[in-house]
Design a protein around this nucleic acid. Structure first.
Lengths: 113, 113
DNA sequence: CTCGATGTTCAATGAATGTTGAACTATTAC
DNA sequence: GTAATAGTTCAACATTCATTGAACATCGAG
């Protein structure tokens, strides 16, 4: 059925949805870590965050971030490549993402490498 | 009992708490309206927001904003004067409040004046 | 002191949230 | 083909969240 992942268009990203999505430690950590991985999607998949929770929980959180318009999820084989929607967020809420990221917790990323 | 309203000190304001508090339409509207009322507390009391919900609901939301460190609540007689903690928020998360406020919904403030 | 106004507290309620494990789909490797 | 890998979906569950109405506390005015 809905095999296509829905992403809100830039203009459909709303502030309450973004704030709500980021108001969770796990999701904030995902975004923070994601921001430290260069521009495009680079080998950052869902399982990259398994240290933050079970794969079911991650699926849930990542869907929330996607539906809020914060991240992009692109299927690549059996994996999903994740990336921050920096441009869209900056266009929609100038300065917002930068201020959040600069204040985001150090995010002791302990990754299963 | 605890007749004194607790406000977190500047350094105890955390990003997840702030994001969580702002991830609610009613509270975002309160903050938005509050930001449009000059610097200090100026005749802006809890009942100023009665168009946004019942007084019980407002008491709840205003307490949330206070506990998150977003607003200051100063008792004045039987009223409480509300004000944004602009300085503390700016010191803690530079640029954050400005970016949120500039993107916040127009806040059709219909006040019982 | 009594009244009216401003808010808070409490218990109850329903909705939304986040987590889990099992089952499932889809792709890749062999 | 089978098996392994990567995620999703589902039902169940516990927790938190937001709202309501009733009762209460506090202050100012008269």
């Amino acid at each position: 059925m809905t095999n296509v992942l829905h992403h809100p268009s830039k203009e459909d990203i709303t502030l309450p949805a973004v704030l709500g999505a980021l108001g969770d430690e796990t999701r904030l950590a995902i975004v923070s870590i994601l921001s430290r991985h260069g521009e495009s999607e680079r080998n950052v998949t869902c399982s990259y965050f398994l240290n933050l929770g079970s794969k079911t929980a991650l699926s849930y959180h990542i869907a929330k971030l996607r539906e809020a318009g914060i991240i992009n999820v692109r299927p690549d084989g059996t994996k999903r490549l994740l990336s921050l929607r920096r441009g869209d967020l900056e266009a929609r809420f100038p300065g917002f993402l930068a201020s959040v990221l600069s204040a985001a917790p150090a995010a002791d990323e302990e990754v299963d490498a």
